[in-house]
């Protein structure tokens, strides 16, 4: 397995270089370094000299990808792309274009993101598995039909509606929780309660339908019929045997998103005023802070690759027949 992990880690390097290159090209297709400088210097009374100085100080005065004036390897290394990319591979995110230390910001902002994402995932998992088990249990009955219809309705509603509707109902009308905000420490529960409830509720529709399909497929297998014939209670059968065997596809979906929980939710964090990494990325895009955009895309890619690796490893844990090679 160790050799497999090393090999996957090596595969990741060209992928990360590619992602970085793509981010770089996409960003600078839309914005030139002059545009970025202008954005950071403000709208009023910006002189061309100030723009040049800003570019010089922030490392945007070199050519983007190829330096024709340089010699040898300098043609590639004396460029903005090389300057800005190499340090990323050592996880040195450097400073944002506004001067803030990105690593410090990430370490501060990942906790609020996790405070919402982790409970949403765990509670959501519990609720969705239980609900889909219930539907599988009553398969083919009017209860199953009603449940599936409910899932379709829940899936058809926009996530934004859940957020605004939840805020309106629970915060504005019933005065049960704050509309938005965040406090660190134990006080945080008052602020994450509603986002978590909304996150779980809005995810029921799609996840439960998917899990139901997996369970139905599993429930029709021979070993289930045998267990039932031997008189095993249905609940025990579902939760001890069917669930265990259905875990592989469920894990595929879950483990891969585990590292990405750090990255936060863009809309949720924005509406609830949660100072997480989701809103950090959005802000960076809005303010054309390439340093942050690049760092967050890179981090997201690393975490995604990590998630895929963890998924592979988790297969071996839930199904001993699978071997990584």
């Amino acid at each position: 397995m160790f050799a497999y992990i090393i090999r996957r880690a090596l595969y990741a390097i060209p992928i990360l270089v590619g992602v970085n290159l793509l981010t770089f090209v996409l960003f600078f297709v839309v914005n030139s370094p002059d545009d970025v400088a202008r954005m950071h210097l403000g709208m009023k009374r910006v002189t061309p000299e100030a723009i040049e100085k800003w570019k010089e100080e922030h490392g945007y005065s070199r050519p983007l990808l190829y330096n024709a004036d340089a010699s040898g390897t300098g043609k590639l290394t004396e460029t903005i792309f090389y300057d800005k990319s190499v340090r990323l591979f050592a996880f040195d995110f450097g400073s944002s274009d506004a001067g803030r230390d990105i690593g410090e910001d990430i370490s501060q902002r990942m906790w609020p993101s996790l405070a919402i994402a982790l409970p949403t995932l765990l509670i959501g998992l519990l609720v969705n598995i239980s609900f889909s088990m219930l539907l599988a249990f009553f398969r083919g009955t009017y209860l199953d039909l009603s449940g599936v219809m409910l899932c379709v309705v829940l899936m058809s509603i926009s996530g934004l509606f859940y957020i605004i509707g939840g805020q309106y109902l629970f915060s504005k009308l019933l005065h049960l929780v704050p509309v938005s905000g965040y406090e660190p420490g134990l006080q945080a529960w008052r602020f994450i309660l509603l986002p978590v409830v909304i996150g779980v509720f809005s995810g029921i529709g799609s996840s439960s339908r998917w899990y139901r399909t997996i369970f139905l497929e599993e429930i029709n297998r021979d070993y289930v019929r045998t267990a039932r014939a031997k008189g095993l209670p249905e609940v025990r059968l579902l939760f001890r045997h069917v669930l265990k065997n259905a875990l592989v596809p469920i894990l595929t979906g879950i483990v891969v998103v585990l590292p990405l929980l750090f990255m936060g939710s863009l809309i949720m964090e924005s509406f609830f005023g949660i100072p997480g990494l989701g809103s950090y990325t959005i802000e960076a895009i809005q303010t054309q802070d390439f340093a942050i955009v690049r760092a967050m895309v890179f981090l997201g890619s690393v975490l995604y690759i990590l998630g895929l690796l963890l998924t592979d490893i988790s297969y071996t844990l839930v199904d001993p027949r699978i071997r990584l090679s």
């Binding site: 915060s171 609830f272 005023g273």
Partner: peptide, 18 residues
């Protein structure tokens, strides 16, 4: 000063006296 990215929560909190 609290960070508020969206207008709707800000407005609701004003109406609630916050």
């Amino acid at each position: 000063y609290s960070l508020e990215k969206e207008a709707i929560p800000t407005w609701n909190k004003f109406l609630q006296g916050y």
